[in-house]
Design a protein around this nucleic acid. Structure first.
Lengths: 230, 230
DNA sequence: CTATGTGAATAGCTTCACAGCG
DNA sequence: CGCTGTGAAGCTATTCACATAG
């Protein structure tokens, strides 16, 4: 889980580098990231001894070390599957600033999209994907296709030797052997966020049928969940 | 944390409803969601007694109960800030299938975008946002603007009484009082995913300077992290 | 006999407190 | 002294095991 916080530190470190700050303490990093100093020290110490006691961390060296751990010191080439609005946004995004990850190949099954350019990359037909990825030795991919196509696409990616997938399709597809999938599920985020906003009238009227009443669950929400959170 | 899994159960339940399955066990739900039966029972029991012992959960009732807990039995109206590719994708997405959440207002600071329609919703100028949200009593928003604008937009949303924000801007902005923010940070996901893919040659050459060698951190990665994960 | 609901045990992660080093 | 690195303590979340109800 520490790995998931390294990019947060990296972002803060790049900010500090832009400000020409040479040395940074775990406290300073904590301020900038919203995490605790102990947490940061634990995370960093887990991967090696990057700091100097009594001083702090050398900004440039720590940033480089983190990029090294993540494998981002050489720009990582990524494939994008699905050239819709979402895919386009993602391709353009990685093209703009260099975060160590860049979309260098795009695939779509729609013949109308094939041949067009997005952020300088030509969209290829889906059936060229496996061969192309193998040839170009691309090991990471973003999946931004409809839920119905996700499973097939991910199987194809596995066949092509892709080891990491960032999946935007709203579907829980379990990873093939040798592949790691990170899911970004907007529906899930929106729906769970909904829990925290008060409804229109917030009335206590019971809903139809024999199911537990709205009041019942709202009560439980208010009592059990609100205090500890946020 | 249980709340974040409710939408997962809800999705599985809607699938089951489409298949006309009336009753479902925690085991069946576990199969479909990839979670454990005990986890599911604990989560559901936390909000009330929805099941019947020896039988299982009544699909329709459980789905309704979860929607009730999340506040999704009446469609939740959401504002979208930022009508770029990402925003467009999100607006269209909520318009297609009804997940209980729908974009019903869109704001952008770009005069060229104001007045255009996305998924049937007219894009309004940003300076109309606070008034409009107050009037229409919209309590949730999606922020899909550049990182530089995120803080200002979120402050405006707080002023308008918005209680929940789904933030796509790659920036850690802490939530104003009374607001809950869920972050979706694609850069973070991509960069942390990079950790799990092997680099081009996967050579052990040390990088420049006095920083810990590539070899060192790779070792540590392989030893400490790989076995337990995935 | 089935499958939920739940205390107890366990595992994983975070915070604390301080030793260690510059 | 200052700040890192780290064992120990504390906490949260998950899994186990079983009592409970139909």
């Amino acid at each position: 889980m520490a790995v998931r916080r390294l990019p947060i530190y990296l972002r803060a470190l790049h900010e500090l580098l832009d400000e020409d700050v040479q040395i940074v303490s775990s406290h300073e990093l904590a301020e900038r990231t919203g995490l605790s100093p102990e947490q940061i020290r634990k995370d960093l110490a887990y991967f090696g001894a990057f700091g100097r006691r009594g001083v702090g961390y050398e900004t440039r060296i720590l940033a480089s070390a983190i990029r090294d751990i993540l494998g981002l010191n050489r720009e990582l080439r990524v494939a994008l599957v699905g050239a819709g609005n979402l895919g386009t946004a993602l391709a353009r995004y990685t093209a703009d600033r260099h975060h160590g990850v860049r979309v260098v190949a795009i695939f779509d099954s729609d013949p109308h999209k094939v041949g067009t350019r997005i952020a300088g990359v030509v969209v290829q037909p889906l059936d060229q994907m496996v061969d192309t990825l193998r040839q170009r030795q691309i090991r990471m991919a973003i999946v931004a296709v409809p839920a119905t196509q996700a499973r097939r696409v991910i199987d194809m990616l596995a066949e092509a030797g892709v080891q990491g997938v960032l999946n935007f399709a709203p579907t829980k597809v379990r990873a093939p052997r040798g592949m790691r999938i990170h899911h970004v599920d907007v529906t899930l985020e929106l729906q769970s966020l909904a829990f925290w906003v008060t409804a229109e009238g917030e009335v206590s009227g019971s809903s139809s049928g024999g199911e537990p009443s709205s009041w019942q669950v709202r009560q439980c929400r208010a009592e059990k969940e609100y205090p500890p959170r946020q």
